[in-house]
């Protein structure tokens, strides 16, 4: 099966720091691909580089089409949904306005799906997003990506700072979403990765040090410890 997203020789330099040093991997067209690695390895930067949010060199191909040179908005319009690490919601806008802003093209926009998964967003439609709890903000961030017919979701640490009960809810949502659209997921929570990820990519100091099946990495405690420093 041909991969949906192919990244090759991705470099990012910010100031005098060489943050990504030739990242390359492929994301299959189904399931969840988890990007793992220690803090500061370059996981978040990899997602931002794919989306053109940080200046980069290298190749990014979506379904065979080279999109590396496009501006961010054009890359996203090719069918990528992005939920960033800090959630990227607009605090001064209402929940409904946050969702409306994310509508792309003529639609139809899948509010039914979003409101079915997150009924709370419908109840709190008129509330300012800045006053939501962390978990609710994450719902807005993920809900935005589900609104459009995306070909892939890029989700950055969706469970960071959330209570265990909410983490389970988010995992449920991602698992369900992954049945319809492939997800490139950055995540530190290995229990979550174990539960929903099919493939893994391990990054260390700006380079890829391991790719493969999620199950085979995480069932090997020695390899996990070596690559991630944890069991």
């Amino acid at each position: 099966m041909t991969p949906l997203l192919e990244i090759a020789d991705l470099h990012v330099r910010i100031g005098s720091s060489h943050i990504l040093q030739g990242i390359g991997f492929a994301v299959p067209a189904t399931g969840v691909t988890a990007v793992l690695g220690r803090n500061g390895a370059g996981k978040t930067t990899t997602l931002k580089a794919v989306l053109g949010i940080v200046p980069k060199t290298g190749s990014v191909r979506l379904d065979g089409e080279e999109i590396g040179a496009l501006p961010t908005h054009a890359i996203v319009r090719r069918g990528l949904g992005y939920a960033p690490e800090d959630r990227g919601i607009f605090a001064g806008l209402t929940v409904t306005e946050n969702l409306r802003l994310a509508e792309r093209g003529r639609g139809p926009h899948r509010y039914d799906l979003v409101y079915e998964m997150f009924p709370e967003l419908k109840q709190r439609g008129a509330q300012r997003a800045g006053t939501l709890s962390g978990g609710q903000q994450q719902m807005v961030a993920i809900g935005r990506t589900l609104l459009n017919d995306n070909r892939m979701l890029l989700v950055d640490e969706p469970t960071k700072g959330l209570a265990p009960k909410i983490v389970t809810e988010v995992a449920d949502v991602l698992e369900r979403a992954a049945r319809e659209v492939p997800i490139l997921l950055v995540e530190q929570n290995l229990a979550l990765v174990r539960r929903i990820a099919d493939h893994v990519v391990v990054i260390e100091q700006g380079t890829v040090v391991h790719t493969g099946e999620a199950a085979s990495l995480l069932s090997d405690p020695d390899l996990t410890r070596e690559l991630l420093g944890v069991a």
Partner: peptide
């Protein structure tokens, strides 16, 4: 208006607006 919404959002976080596929 939708443009007004884009302007208000852009004042808060321009990068995220482009990351939603909007040409700011």
């Amino acid at each position: 208006t939708r443009f007004g919404l884009i302007v208000r959002a852009g004042v808060e976080d321009r990068t995220m607006v482009t990351a939603l596929g909007i040409n700011v």
